[in-house]
Design a protein around this nucleic acid. Structure first.
Lengths: 182, 182
DNA sequence: AGTTCAGTACCGAACGATCGGTACAAAACA
DNA sequence: TGTTTTGTACCGATCGTTCGGTACTGAACT
């Protein structure tokens, strides 16, 4: 059992409960490992666990969501595919985004920096696509920011209202909103 | 010193750090009270503290933001005024929304219910205005949901990126987006 | 008037429980 | 054999909470 084996379990915990909401006892139970084993795989303790989890989530996002945006093809279709992948990642709006969960809550400077880079990378990847599709650079930047705002906001509202439809509607509208006028 | 005296301090703590991120030691320091004194004002403990804080914030929102939406006047102007009040509440995007902060993080069922009602009330108040302005009921409901999505999402992104401009841009665009076609 | 007395506001000290983290030796595997 | 992995027991610190008690107040009683 390598440490990667248990990252999905950590991912579920941290995205749903945040840093402070997850205790080592929770992690031990979710992974089936004892505390000693956890500290064997993550000598840096809880901080290393959440950082590794963010890395795991970032890799998944990069590979399955952002990288396909760079392929050749119609911008609209690429964005629709992105929304499909996001719907999968967030389980149709029933699961929160780990970036959002960790953004709110107390400010841990090292964590905050990683989250910041993640959000910025997300925005940048969408902007690149829009620019390649012919959009003005400034407008592309604004629209991609709006996209992440819609994603994070709709996830939050969906969770707050206990109703995934705001997220689902956002995903349905996103490609059109981003491509308008192209 | 009544308990209301200390609610603003609690509000600042909980909106920024969430439920788990705030300890009674933090609250004691922020209010200048001893931990035992806190239990004099809030016999129900931390749960009562956060609930009272949500009530305080809800009252402020209702009085200063939602109630003015019901007054007579041009819908566009009323919404612009609402955005001004919201900018004040969120300090131009530099302060998070307590509803968002408490939405993410571990699920505390009683808290979740209060937050849910708060979000729903917010959406409903905007929808009422749009309906009165002549918008179809279904469209009004969707647009007001989108409004709260934009508010919460832009606040989250602003905080995540350490840059208040996404929120400020959202506030500038909101009235136009809501009133389009009226 | 002086005294009692209930009520409010507050606090230091301590409670049991849990927090994140560590030491170490047995077990499992190579 | 040596190395990796784990269970157990433990640590100091902090968690939310409670206890016993002090200081002050304004009304009630003598």
């Amino acid at each position: 059992m390598s440490r990667e084996t248990h990252l999905p379990a950590l991912f579920q915990l941290f995205r749903q409960q945040g840093y402070d909401g997850v205790s080592l006892a929770n992690i031990a139970q979710a992974t089936g490992l004892g505390k000693a084993s956890l500290y064997h795989h993550f000598p840096g303790g809880k901080d290393e666990m959440v950082l590794a989890t963010l890395g795991y989530a970032g890799d998944w996002l990069e590979l399955n969501v952002l990288e396909p945006l760079g392929e050749d093809g119609d911008a609209r279709e690429l964005l629709e595919e992105m929304c499909d992948r996001l719907s999968q990642l967030y389980d149709e709006g029933r699961q929160p985004c780990i970036l959002g969960t960790l953004t709110l809550g107390p400010v841990r400077d090292d964590l905050h920096e990683v989250v910041k880079q993640g959000l910025a990378r997300f925005i940048e990847a969408i902007a690149q696509l829009l620019i390649k599709a012919g959009l003005d650079q400034r407008l592309a930047q604004e629209r991609s920011e709006d996209a992440v705002v819609m994603i994070q906001g709709s996830l939050l509202v969906s969770r707050g209202l206990d109703d995934p439809t705001p997220f689902q509607r956002a995903m349905a509208q996103l490609p059109e909103k981003l491509c308008a006028g192209i």
